[in-house]
């Protein structure tokens, strides 16, 4: 939550215009403090409902999770203080640690591929398909965002099954030897789940990046072309650097989606086969609700949160500090 709300200023300052990328100079700030107190109070009153909701539904559960992570507790009876033992357990039990490794593998599929592919697709749409064709292709790519992930997961489960459509197509084009139960295969289950992630997130990245591109000054491209820049040169030297902040937002959102993945994985494989797609989200759920080990589940959740912050904060820093 913290990181996504941090994104917003990045987007809005960007959208104020390509030329004024920087925040207002600091010298303006003290004037705010001179505002009459009453207005300050009214301002706080307006934000109060949102603040209360945020405190009750985000900050309080966060604090409670941190508290629980130091106890052994079944969710009902007495809580026993165990200090850092739950954290040590997470690091000692190989199955728990393996879920974190799987989460990082998912980052490749949920984040790197959709963002890089999204850049290419958006720039193609931006350059080639400007009219109705562009609108249609953007809509088609964005559609997966509209479908509930659980429904999408179930449908992908059918498509990827051994008797499913994907294998039927492969057989029809003479690739019968590579057919398999994609979600039940040790080597292919994680990439298959990752593929569903690409399908979901590509549209989001494409639309966001395309919006950024359409706000860039056309004069920049014009001068690049006059200088004889190739498509690739134009892409690498004009588009990507100027879209730094949009790319940052895409990376942030998709990386969180990968590290905190639950719904797609739970609906398609439930962590199988043999824990090969088990991610921290699934493990936290099983520990907390099936095994009633609230303390251990909370410790894993806190570690996941720290991990997400450790990955996201550098991305934020890197993409916001525009020279």
């Amino acid at each position: 939550m913290m990181t996504t709300s941090d994104n917003r200023p990045a987007v809005s300052t960007r959208s104020q215009g390509a030329s004024s990328n920087r925040r207002p100079p600091r010298g303006n700030l003290p004037r705010r403090e001179l505002l009459p107190r009453r207005e300050n109070v009214i301002g706080w009153l307006f934000t109060l409902p949102a603040l209360v909701m945020y405190a009750v539904f985000v900050l309080l559960p966060l604090a409670l999770s941190i508290q629980y992570s130091f106890f052994r507790w079944d969710g009902i009876g007495e809580m026993t203080w165990v200090g850092l033992k739950n954290y040590a357990t997470v690091l000692e039990v190989p199955d728990l640690l393996a879920t974190i490794v799987n989460a990082f593998k998912l980052v490749v599929f949920f984040s790197f591929i959709p963002v890089s592919l999204g850049l290419v697709v958006a720039s193609v749409i931006h350059r080639v398909a400007t009219g109705r064709l562009g609108a249609i292709s953007r809509t088609v790519l964005f559609l997966p965002q509209v479908i509930p992930l659980v429904a999408a997961g179930i449908i992908w489960g059918w498509l990827l099954a051994l008797p499913g459509l994907i294998n039927q197509v492969l057989r029809a084009i003479g690739l019968g030897t590579i057919t398999r139960a994609w979600l039940g295969d040790f080597d292919w289950a994680l990439p298959s789940v990752g593929f569903i992630g690409i399908w979901v997130l590509l549209g989001f990245c494409t639309v966001l990046l395309w919006t950024g591109m359409s706000k860039l000054d056309p004069a920049l491209y014009e001068s690049a072309r006059i200088d004889g820049a190739s498509w690739y040169k134009e892409f690498a030297s004009v588009t990507v650097p100027l879209l730094r902040q949009e790319i940052g937002v895409c990376l942030t959102v998709t990386t969180i989606a990968a590290l905190a993945a639950f719904d797609i994985v739970y609906v398609t494989t439930a962590g199988g086969p043999g824990n090969s797609t088990a991610v921290p989200g699934i493990q936290i759920y099983i520990l907390a609700f099936t095994q009633q080990r609230i303390g251990l589940a909370s410790a894993l959740a806190v570690m996941l949160m720290l991990l997400v912050l450790a990955v996201i904060l550098p991305i934020q820093r890197l993409t916001r500090e525009v020279s």
Binding site: L160, L162, D185, P273, G274
Partner: peptide, 12 residues
């Protein structure tokens, strides 16, 4: 057993 057993659910 079926080759895709790891992906077969109870109802299937």
């Amino acid at each position: 057993f079926p080759p895709d057993i790891n992906a077969i659910e109870y109802t299937d």
